[in-house]
Design a protein around this nucleic acid. Structure first.
Lengths: 129, 129
DNA sequence: CATGTTTTTGCGACTTTGTTGCAAAAATAG
DNA sequence: CTATTTTTGCAACAAAGTCGCAAAAACATG
């Protein structure tokens, strides 16, 4: 995937900060916090800019959040639009999108209307095991 | 449920802060943030005390956390030890423990070992619908 | 490619959540 | 009742995230 094309297809202006931050995501296979992004771009941009960029990427559906306990929100590139489980390894810290796990069987009781879902399982990943 | 007995059975000393905070939980059917607890006890105790109390209650398994995006951690009394989904209504803010939804069908791929799970669905509850 | 308009950025100040060390106060054990 | 242990309040702190505003960069258009 190309960062310039990705910005274009989402109708986002091509600023260096957006390109750089997007490239960080493209090069990472893990969920990233704002802090981790900041490190990887050597604090080249203001924290406010990074936060604003993350917000926009999210609204566009380029990235999606992983919400874990006692942790800052992490983001990963949204490769698969299908709703899925996230797995966070407690040892290496890696976050995996388990798109192969079927969660379509989860049905809410009458009257509950789903808008968004967030499933996170933590434990040990195959690599650390 | 009685707050004094609950403290005793968990081998916690009976301080007025623990009793009061536990009572707030016993009287609430919603997940509560530290701030909300603070309001309900009229800031009778220091914030640090409330945080420390929440931590201990959690370690003892008296309460359990609800982790939602862009939200402070909420806690609810752990009535049912069975793993379950939480539902958060975006309108009224109420959090429901959907113990009736069966999630035992969720199986992780080979090599992944589950330690903890956090399932949160947000949307609209029957009351607001 | 020059220029006017729109969008984005950096800065700084701020809010909120949550933590920690330490001395005083309260709870508990005997 | 008293000694010991635990808990509390205070104050200071750290880190995440937001916001207004002026400057800078990107973009559209001729």
């Amino acid at each position: 995937m190309n960062s310039l094309a990705l910005l274009k297809s989402n109708k986002l202006s091509q600023t260096s900060s957006r390109i750089d931050i997007l490239e960080v995501f493209l090069e990472s296979d893990t969920g990233l916090t704002e802090k981790e992004i900041d490190e990887r771009i050597d604090s080249k941009y203001d924290r406010a800019t990074v936060y604003r960029t993350l917000k926009i990427f999210r609204e566009k559906g380029i990235i999606h959040p992983i919400i874990a306990e006692n942790e800052m929100t992490r983001y990963v590139l949204k490769k698969d639009p299908v709703e899925h489980i996230h797995f966070k390894c407690e040892l290496c810290g890696n976050v995996f999108c388990l798109t192969e796990v079927n969660i379509s069987g989860i049905k809410l009781p009458k009257g509950f209307i789903k808008k968004e879902a967030n499933f996170l399982i933590s434990g040990m990943c195959p690599g650390c095991n």
